[in-house]
Amino acid sequence: MSQPKIPTYILSGFLGSGKTTVLLKMLSDFKSRGLKPGIVLNELGQVNVEGHMFKGEKMLEMLDGCICCTIQDDLREELQFFLQEENAVDILLIEGTGVANPKEILEALTDPRLRDGFETQSIISLADASKFLEYQSIFSSSREIREMLNEQITSATLILLNKMDLVNEKTKDKINKKLRKQLKAEVEIIETVYGDVELDELLKKRMSTVAVSLSKETGNAGYSHHEHEDHHHHEHPFKAFKIEDFPAVERIRFEKWLKKLPESVLRGKGMVSLASPSGLYQFQFASKEVEMERMEDQNCRTCLILIGYNMPIEEIRVSFQQEVLQTVSI
């Protein structure tokens, strides 16, 4: 019997927005409920100056790099730690650096090699209300800061607008208007002071994974939701979905299909068996670009994972069959 996936939450937010305060409060709440949390802390420097706050926790420290770039491969390797029986946790929290792009952390988590171990529930991004308008202004911040903040906000499934005690009503209205322009309608904004939020709000499942089957035995028009732990009866706009165990494909046909996918598909990755040159290849797909690399281990199962927002899953499944596998749609 396979182990249940570890529910995983990504904590994001610019420097000084209050991520660590929220993380510590979540840990305290978990313990009061008898849950065993695991933590991944990421720091750009060689030392985590806040490490002492987490003594006694099941924790991985990723130092001297940012998960979203230089140590993404390390994260994939290190996460295996939590899949060992002696290190089992009930829930995992990943706090990126203040300049981490949550999409890149999500990409590491949805690596096909980890697909059966972790399930991302939500990307919680904190924004500092007292600095928000200043950081967004072309007059008082750099393009890099504005772009990074935009990445953190637009990839969130929940926004915590923190330090609300430091702004007046007029500023609050301006911030909310600006945020609503950047966010999808479904993304909730919770206003907070000292990151104080009910744990149940933070733990709501705001992303989901759909397993897509190519076999005739599966009902529901060929794909099925595996969301037994989700008790909310609404559709999640953010999804990852996967297709597994498909035969060898033609590289040109496969790449052409990827590049034609709808804009709502933000990322693609997985392992494909190519007909020519034959063999198993790992692929990455982002911004309409495809990268392929032959795998050392040629015994893995084929797997395609797509991550996106309101994706037309059934359309994509049918087009994969017709255009890549060249089989009749089921």
Score class of each variant (00 low, 15 high):
residue 268 G to M: 12
residue 214 L to T: 11
residue 110 T to C: 12
residue 221 A to D: 15
residue 308 G to C: 05
residue 30 F to A: 05
residue 107 E to Y: 15
residue 54 F to K: 04
residue 39 I to F: 04
residue 285 F to T: 01
residue 162 N to L: 03
residue 152 Q to A: 06
residue 210 V to M: 05
residue 77 E to H: 13
residue 23 L to V: 07
residue 110 T to P: 00
residue 284 Q to M: 10
residue 58 K to R: 13
residue 200 D to Y: 08
residue 135 Y to G: 02
residue 2 S to V: 07
residue 149 L to G: 00
residue 325 L to Q: 02
residue 150 N to L: 14
residue 13 G to W: 01
residue 230 D to K: 10
residue 285 F to L: 08
residue 312 P to Q: 10
residue 92 L to S: 03
residue 156 A to N: 01
residue 3 Q to C: 11
residue 195 G to K: 04
residue 23 L to C: 03
residue 148 M to F: 06
residue 6 I to C: 09
residue 53 M to G: 00
residue 81 F to K: 03
residue 318 V to D: 07
residue 159 I to D: 01
residue 218 T to W: 10
residue 16 G to T: 07
residue 94 I to H: 04
residue 141 S to H: 05
residue 62 M to D: 01
residue 187 V to N: 05
residue 39 I to V: 15
residue 96 G to Q: 05
residue 102 P to G: 10
residue 276 S to E: 15
residue 141 S to T: 09
residue 111 D to H: 15
residue 213 S to K: 11
residue 311 M to D: 00
residue 70 T to Y: 01
residue 147 E to V: 11
residue 318 V to I: 14
residue 26 M to I: 10
residue 181 K to Q: 10
residue 233 H to F: 09
residue 197 V to H: 01
residue 71 I to N: 06
residue 10 I to G: 01
residue 305 I to C: 00
residue 136 Q to C: 05
residue 183 L to E: 02
residue 254 F to Y: 08
residue 280 L to N: 09
residue 120 T to G: 08
